[in-house]
Design a protein around this nucleic acid. Structure first.
Length: 507
RNA sequence: GCCGCGUUGGUCAAGGGGUUAAGACGCCUCCCUUUCACGGAGGAAUCACGGGUUCGAUUCCCGUACGUGGUACCA
């Protein structure tokens, strides 16, 4: 019988939630939803030295914004809790001891200094990173090298110890990765990983298998950085007697820097001017705060779409997907093996596409908070009329202000150089005549304004094209924005006259 | 160093023994627009390299190079 699909995302609460992390969430979520399964979030906070206050809540806030709601977690509940590893501390020890009893693990009493000593002593050009493994463990202080009496004495006297897995000298460990196919490793090349730390907390290696087992995880998906330690995990599943319940593995490719080499980091975002976190993260330790995709004006559905396409496609030309489409079309076997470089320009294009599909009411609600950061007292009715005029030239929600501020705030410091050189009295005269005729206009709308403008130009024998750009500069302050007559229509007679007259005096 | 995993235009990528090697982003040109965008039409640009296998290799195999990850009482 097929197992129920249960997948998990297991972040450590140590800082901002990165692009790659959200993509791992997404792929897990899509797989779960597609298979009527459960998506679980488990907090892996076993490293007390890296714990950051607030990071856990922040992760859930990010998932919430993305619309990727867990079925089970610290905040969503569930039958397999606790979902925070620090709350499960007592569970792990007994399994570690079981492994010792079976001869698959051992106590190690080496101090950090002794470990350091061993590494520097054994370090050579050919072997720059000596490991604690079958070659070295008998020279260290552990329950394999020491007599039973010594071990007993050390434990009873309260000497700190860790529990390490005893990796077989030379065994081939193979497994099938859902993305990469058959993968084999030689056990002798992997070190005797610490399973239980001196403070009684498990390391990732022990915790991930114990919890995946206890939480009945059916498919274990994670980043490619875990591939080298997969043999340790597989051995643990075997040693603990759970081989038949072992989840299927899948290791996702990495998201890389847009330029140079390496994994994308928050520094790359700062250096190249784009966010790497889902939402703003303010580190309580350093006081440093970095905006996320949300703050720079991305739509969550676009953000999710971008991430989905970074390493996956559905074998058609479709690129813009809703979350529901992704749920039905996603497939693990179409995930790439190779890492992908993140492209911010393309990311903005995705957001543009999603923005255009929004209703005007939705856009109004989405844009309002961004407009308020610039001008808290905008005319809401005016904003509603402005949105359809500018939306197609916006990529980000933050672009709306840049594209429309002149509707709400009279432009200052207008650069008239594009028109001042060719300015003459005929043009001044044209605007003066047009301004007075404005008072006679019965319908204040774009068409009427344009007709009047054209007629006036014809009457004064001036080319319409010569006065169009000047009008735009007067109204907008620059060579951009929607149709000038639409702008004039929304601005209203009084404001148009003020702006035109003001510039006329300067020319 | 060792081990794992990768490699199709600048980027995301489709394809998978015989193709004019899709599409998208970006870039360039033109059209639309009396602005700037949007939109439309074009264009430049790719199978890392070397050996096999084969009538034929971008595709399969082996090397090499390059990239990337791991090599912690971090995850």
């Amino acid at each position: 019988m097929e197992k129920d699909v249960r997948v998990r995302f297991a972040p450590s609460p140590t800082g901002g939630l990165h692009l790659g992390g959200v993509r791992t969430v997404l792929y897990n979520y899509l797989f779960a939803k597609q298979n009527n399964g459960k998506f679980i979030v488990r907090i892996e906070d076993t490293d007390r030295t890296r714990f950051v206050e607030g990071a856990e809540q922040y992760i859930f806030d990010c998932l919430d914004w993305c619309g990727l709601t867990p079925d089970e977690s610290v905040v969503h509940g569930g039958e397999y809790g606790p979902y925070r590893q620090s709350d499960r501390k007592e569970i792990y020890k007994k399994y570690a001891e079981q492994l010792i009893d079976q001869g698959n693990a051992y106590y190690a009493f080496d101090t950090p200094e002794e470990l350091e000593q061993m590494r520097t002593n054994l370090k050579t050009d050919k072997n720059p990173n000596p490991q604690y493994d079958h070659n070295t463990r008998m020279n260290m202080r552990n329950s394999l090298s020491l007599s039973d009496a010594e071990v007993k004495q050390l434990i009873e006297s309260g000497t700190p110890y860790v529990i390490r897995i005893k990796m077989p000298d030379n065994e081939t460990i193979s497994f099938t990765d859902m993305i990469r196919g058959e993968i084999s490793n030689s056990s002798g090349l992997v070190d005797d990983k610490v399973l239980l730390k001196a403070d009684g907390m498990p390391t990732y290696h022990l915790a991930v298998v114990v919890d995946d087992y206890l939480m009945k995880i059916s498919h274990a998906f994670r980043g490619e950085e875990w591939l080298p330690s997969a043999p340790v995990h597989i051995l643990l599943w075997k040693y603990l007697g759970w081989e038949n319940e072992m989840p299927q593995w899948g290791h996702f490719p990495l998201i890389l820097k847009p330029d140079g080499n390496g994994k994308l980091s928050k520094r790359d975002g700062q250096r190249l001017g784009f966010p790497v976190f889902a939402m703003k993260w303010a580190d309580p330790g350093t006081g440093e705060a970095l905006d996320g995709f949300k703050e720079v004006g991305f739509l969550p559905e676009a953000f999710v779409n971008i991430l989905a396409m970074l390493g996956w496609n559905d074998n058609t030309e479709q690129e813009v997907f809703s979350l529901n489409e992704l749920i039905s079309k996603f497939s693990i076997d179409r995930i790439h093996k190779g890492g992908a470089k993140f492209d911010y320009e393309k990311a903005k294009w995705f957001n543009h596409k999603h923005l255009q599909e929004k209703t005007e009411t939705d856009l109004y609600n989405l844009v309002l908070p961004f407009i308020h950061t610039h001008s808290p007292e905008v005319d809401n009715e005016l904003l509603k009329k402005v949105i359809p005029l500018v939306k197609e030239r916006c990529n980000l929600l933050t672009d709306f202000w840049d594209q429309s501020h002149f509707f709400f705030v009279r432009p200052e410091n207008i650069d008239t150089t594009p028109i001042s050189g060719k300015w003459d009295d005929d043009k001044t005269n044209f605007f003066k005549v047009w301004l007075t005729k404005l008072d006679e206009l019965t319908n204040w709308d774009a068409d009427s304004l344009e007709n009047l403008f054209t007629d006036t130009a014809t009457e004064l024998s001036i080319k319409k094209g010569q006065v169009m750009l000047p009008l735009r500069i007067m109204l907008v302050g620059g060579k951009y924005g929607p149709n000038v007559m639409d702008i004039a229509a929304l601005l209203g007679k009084k404001e148009v006259k003020v702006r035109v007259e003001c510039i006329l005096e300067q020319l």
